[in-house]
Amino acid sequence: QLNEKPLPEGWEMRFTVDGIPYFVDHNRRTTTYIDPRTGKSALDNGPQIAYVRD
């Protein structure tokens, strides 16, 4: 279940091809599976993935 609260300024939620949510921090140009609103991860110790700018 996804959090309904808005993401912090400069953050975006995207999904992997497998449908796993991850979070893009455009301020720091990093990505993470940890939801910045809750501190909880969509994966157990998930790796960071490459930042992609559209």
Rank of each mutant, 00 (worst) to 15 (best):
E12C: 13
E4H: 02
L7W: 02
E9W: 06
R28Q: 13
D35N: 04
N3R: 06
H26Y: 05
P21E: 05
L43K: 13
W11Q: 03
P6Q: 15
F15Q: 14
P21W: 02
V52E: 15
Q1Y: 15
A50H: 13
K40I: 13
R28N: 14
R14H: 07
G39K: 07
G19K: 13
R14F: 09
R37C: 04
T30Q: 13
A42N: 10
N3G: 05
I34E: 11
M13I: 10
V17T: 11
D44Y: 06
K40H: 12
D44P: 08
T30A: 13
P8Q: 04
I34L: 09
I20Y: 06
T16K: 03
G10P: 02
H26T: 06
I49A: 15
T16V: 02
Q48Y: 10
N45W: 05
A50W: 07
R53S: 11
Q1C: 15
T38S: 12
D25H: 05
W11I: 11
M13W: 02
R29L: 08
P21R: 13
R29C: 12
Q1T: 03
G10S: 04
T31E: 04
P6W: 04
E9D: 14
S41Q: 14
R14K: 12
D54Y: 00
R28S: 15
T30Y: 15
E12A: 07
R53A: 13
G46H: 11
E12W: 01
G46F: 04
T38N: 13
I34K: 07
Q48T: 15
R29G: 06
D54F: 02
T30C: 13
V17Y: 09
V24N: 01
K5M: 06
T30P: 00
P36D: 00
D35K: 02
Y51E: 15
N3D: 14
T38C: 12
D25N: 15
D18V: 05
I49R: 14
T16I: 02
S41D: 09
Y33M: 05
D18L: 04
E12G: 03
D54H: 07
T31K: 04
G46M: 11
G46Y: 07
K5P: 06
R14P: 00
G19H: 11
Q48I: 03
F23T: 00
P8N: 05
T32K: 00
Y22W: 07
H26M: 03
M13G: 09
D25Y: 00
I20G: 07
R37Q: 05
P8E: 03
D54I: 00
S41G: 13
M13H: 05
E4T: 10
G19A: 12
Y22S: 01
Y22T: 02
M13E: 12
T16Y: 02
Y51T: 15
L7I: 08
Q1I: 15
N45F: 07
E4P: 09
M13K: 15
E9L: 10
I34V: 12
R28A: 15
D54T: 05
A42K: 15
P21T: 07
L2K: 14
Y22M: 05
Q1S: 03
T32I: 00
P36C: 01
I49K: 15
K40G: 14
D54G: 04
K5Y: 08
V52H: 14
A42I: 10
L2N: 13
P47F: 02
N27G: 11
Q48F: 08
